[in-house]
């Protein structure tokens, strides 16, 4: 039967997609250094081992700093870009917007190599700051894309009405536009944060002696004894991701309910 073949395909597809993620917590609690079935017993040892790893903490802290800064900066730039592209007409607009969006499809390798050459050339020391620069570059297009659709759906006469009622362009932005595009801003922050936190190539190239989470995890796989505690870390990251998505979805739905809009599925 054709239908059941498609059904089987869909199920196999989903297993293929999610089974590795499900294995993470299973082996994180498994009482063996070898990652293989059968399971030998329950333990939380890998979690406490992970907890005592100072290098890991430093990597997490670095990643958090980078991801939060990149998300905030890219979203701010995204607000300007999206506003400009949806509300104003200016010469060479299509070309300019194209160049802003280009890093979305540009191989990160090229971005990181060219940035590395220039930064070294003008003598900027590699640090968290240089990683943030790279991440802002690659996340801004995503922010512009998400925010453009938020700004697009904004009725221009709302702004004019606020202006007509005595507000300045700035207070109109704060009182009317910002609250109405807030769901878009939250989406943008989350997407940019997620892209930045698991980005590897730029972080590896431009990090100098600063290690971020993705680079640290990759490094740890060289030591088989460290693998179970990395799985423990992975388990926590999966949990945090689910939490983050839930929060994002909650805010998105609340935003929609508050303005009486139609639920169109959202970005997440």
């Amino acid at each position: 039967m054709k239908f059941s073949a498609l059904k089987t395909y869909a199920i196999v597809y989903l297993i293929f997609l999610y089974a590795p993620i499900v294995l993470l917590p299973i082996f994180a609690f498994n009482d063996s250094k070898v990652i293989a079935f059968p399971l030998s017993g329950f333990t939380t040892e890998w979690f406490s081992q992970m907890w005592q790893d100072d290098l890991l903490f430093r990597a997490v802290k670095n990643s958090a700093i980078i991801a939060v800064s990149s998300a905030v900066l890219a979203t701010c730039l995204g607000v300007f870009g999206a506003r400009a592209s949806t509300r104003f007409r200016f010469p060479a607009k299509a070309g300019i917007m194209g160049l802003i969006m280009l890093p979305m499809v540009l191989p990160e390798m090229i971005i990181s190599m060219s940035m590395l050459v220039i930064l070294l050339g003008i003598g900027v020391p590699l640090s968290l700051f240089t990683i943030i620069m790279g991440h802002v570059l690659i996340t801004t297009p995503f922010a512009v894309a998400i925010l453009s659709s938020a700004f697009q759906s904004l009725d221009k006469s709302l702004e004019e009405a606020a202006y007509d009622l005595g507000e300045t362009p700035l207070s109109t932005f704060r009182l009317i536009i910002l609250p109405l595009v807030m769901p878009g801003i939250v989406s943008s922050l989350l997407i940019c944060f997620t892209i930045s936190i698991d980005e590897f190539i730029i972080a590896y190239f431009l990090g100098g002696n600063q290690t971020v989470l993705s680079v640290y995890i990759y490094g740890q796989f060289r030591f088989p004894a460290k693998v179970p505690s990395i799985l423990a870390l992975g388990t926590i990251l999966v949990g945090l991701s689910i939490l983050l998505l839930t929060i994002a979805e909650y805010f998105r739905r609340r935003g929609i309910a508050k303005t009486g809009g139609k639920d169109t599925g959202g970005f997440l």
Binding site: D155, S157, L158, E160, A161, A162, D164, L165, I176, P179, L180, K258, T259, G260, G261
Partner: peptide, 13 residues
């Protein structure tokens, strides 16, 4: 002057 817009422009939030 004040204006009543065709779409009414009621602030939805």
């Amino acid at each position: 002057t004040n204006m009543v817009f065709q779409s009414y422009a009621i602030f939805p939030h």
